[in-house]
């Protein structure tokens, strides 16, 4: 444990309210803008389109007029696995991605990654993206690049970082002001902060004072693919049974998690 060793370790996570999420995509753009995610002229080939945050559209499979849809924003789940053995972390041969036990954040070091893509094969959430080409910003547009996040080069994997640099900035600010702790609202991810519906709540899952601590306990809360043992730190909330069931795989006659 580092500097703040008197405090309990942090476990940052999210609770996303799917009843509120409107599928507007603001979180996706907030993330791209914050994290210098590149863009191309044609982004309709979704399998090579880098979206650290991706909003999925779920359908209930019923016919008109019983049809229903639900939007599900999917950042990296920052899986804890079994004591930090996230699916992607333990497989990376070069330790270019790592589980930070102080924050629970799964990092990605672009300059370390040599592009073997084993981590992508390991991640069941398709949260990892490969730079299939050199990123190109049209002339002038490189001006809006955020200096807190380095643009990636061709041939490496990238993914949501829970806006780790925003954590660093918050820490720096607190440090400069002589504090050793930061408040809940001082470290908010770009997507959570941007969401016009306030559907994303971000905070320390270990901290009783943080909203996520309370929200994750709601009985209508679930995580994606919990049964695989990925132990994700992103929780979802939905009042609709079919949505909760869509969060994991169940055998035909098996009841979804209560």
């Amino acid at each position: 444990m580092s500097k703040g060793s008197k405090h309990k370790v942090k476990k940052f996570g999210m609770v996303i309210d799917l009843d509120k999420c409107t599928g507007c995509g603001a979180c996706m753009v907030a993330c791209m803008s914050e994290n210098n995610v590149p863009f191309k002229e044609n982004e309709s080939k979704k399998l090579d389109s880098i979206t650290w945050m991706r909003v999925y559209k779920l359908e209930n499979g019923k016919s008109f007029p019983e049809a229903d849809i639900c939007f599900l924003p999917r950042p990296c789940m920052h899986c804890e696995g079994d004591r930090g053995h996230a699916p992607c972390v333990s497989v990376c041969p070069a330790i270019a991605t790592d589980y930070d036990h102080n924050t629970g954040i799964v990092s990605q070091i672009y300059t370390r990654c040599f592009g073997c893509r084993y981590c992508m094969a390991a991640c069941p959430y398709h949260a990892r993206y490969f730079n299939w080409r050199d990123p190109v910003w049209p002339e002038g547009m490189e001006k809006f690049l955020n200096p807190n996040v380095s643009p990636r080069m061709r041939g490496v994997v990238e993914k949501c970082s829970f806006c780790h640099h925003r954590y660093q900035l918050a820490l720096d600010k607190a440090y400069a002001e002589g504090r050793d702790k930061i408040e809940e609202d001082e470290y908010q991810t770009a997507c959570a902060h941007a969401c016009p519906a306030n559907a994303i709540t971000f905070g320390d899952l270990n901290n009783k004072k943080h909203s996520v601590y309370r929200l994750k306990k709601n009985p209508n809360t679930f995580r994606l693919l919990e049964r695989l043992g990925t132990n994700p730190k992103v929780y979802y909330h939905s009042s609709r049974e079919w949505v909760r069931r869509a969060g994991d795989n169940y055998l035909k006659h098996e009841a979804a998690k209560a």
Binding site: P93, A94, A96, R112, C116, G155
Partner: peptide, 26 residues
């Protein structure tokens, strides 16, 4: 040919992760 950054391939030895099957393979 397969790796995205062939010039960094040696990282697999230099920054070896003992938990990774790929390290073992390499």
């Amino acid at each position: 040919i397969d790796v995205g950054q062939p010039l960094r391939s040696w990282f697999i030895f230099w920054h070896a992760n003992v938990h990774s099957m790929l390290t073992e393979v390499a």
